[in-house]
Write a protein that binds this DNA or RNA. Structure first.
Lengths: 190, 190
DNA sequence: TTAATTTATTGACCTAGGTCAAATGTCAGA
DNA sequence: TCTGACATTTGACCTAGGTCAATAAATTAA
């Protein structure tokens, strides 16, 4: 109950849903739990769920040609998301989705998500907001990669996402910032 | 007339609009022309239009701290787009929009665009597609920046966008690929 | 056509940050 | 509590690609 209320709060923050709409939406989300270090979506699998993270941490990442992890997106508590590229197009996923901590979520299936998209105009506007935010996020990411040094990216993260630094390992942080782990370690010691 | 037909063709390719809907949409798009090397949107201006490029080339770019141009997105003929971040949120734009060639477009205003978004469900789905494509594009961009060398990015562009290489100057291509102009010149001569 | 401006090429040099390897620290499971 | 698997730190070294500068070539304007 607690979980679903948090989600409803997030939803109404984004779109002005009616009570009736919220009820329909709530009925689509199912609680799930994942243990720390569990892979939720493998490469080449099609991503069939969209998540509200109530507690814990989900993250998407892909592997480069040498097999190193490259973190794309991190969802801490009260965030929503999924392996979006795969989810949108029902494509085999290039990226993995995993739980970095013991994590409790609410999940909506692809079919429910797109049924709501057709039947519930406000859900369509909700999805529109999600996409707009996802786009802006990627846009910012590109600007940072292109314009900031490793050190500047790290310092920006400290300012803008101090909770990431606290909760995540160097390994994850460095792969998120596109810095070698050794370089991050050196940056921290200065 | 030719122009509007091309646009209608593109629209129906993306969403199954009815004749009546297409008529409403068509009435929102106004023809415009830009001379080569004209800035259409300055930094800090709010982007108030969305474009269908019928002929020519539009491009968005921003300036890094040293004042060098960094090209974000290039629209050749029969493409659609705008300075999306600013357009979406009505924010002062971080990026410029300019015409790299003499360019003919059809433009829809922000107010018409969002009126259609409210009144015409199929337009909402069209906008959804746009956002999904924009997201995927950025996603791919990030993967390329992170995983490919300068040479590999250039070779990929030759394969996937040979028309870019033909029509655009080294200066534009290099800023699009995030490579120094000198480096691109060296890559080409090998 | 010519001058002026912009763009492209080439060489010499430099550096941020990557790579490799060894030592040390940390923590989950038995 | 111990052990094996990871994570982190540190040093030594390397390199892709950037920077700076000087021509050369191509466009543009007049």
């Amino acid at each position: 109950m607690e979980r679903i209320n948090s989600l409803m709060q997030l939803l109404t923050y984004l779109v002005n849903f009616s009570e009736a709409e919220l009820e329909i939406i709530a009925s689509c989300f199912k609680p799930k739990s994942f243990n720390r270090n569990t892979i939720i979506l493998e490469r080449e699998e099609v991503c069939k769920e969209f998540y509200f993270v109530y507690k814990g941490c989900l993250r998407t990442y892909f592997l480069d040609i040498e097999g190193r992890e490259r973190t794309r997106y991190i969802m801490l508590d009260f965030n929503i998301g999924t392996a979006l590229s795969s989810f949108i197009y029902e494509n085999p996923s290039f990226e993995y989705l995993d739980a970095l901590e013991d994590t409790e979520v609410l999940a909506i299936s692809y079919s429910d998500f797109y049924r709501l998209n057709k039947e519930l105009p406000n859900w369509t506007f909700f999805y529109q907001k999600i996409l707009e935010m996802a786009y802006s996020f990627q846009n910012k990411r590109i600007e940072d990669l292109i314009m900031l040094s490793a050190k500047e990216r790290y310092e920006q993260l400290i300012k803008e996402r101090p909770e990431f630094i606290k909760r995540l390992s160097n390994k994850i942080i460095s792969s998120y910032l596109d810095i070698a782990q050794e370089t991050l370690s050196r940056l921290k010691s200065k």
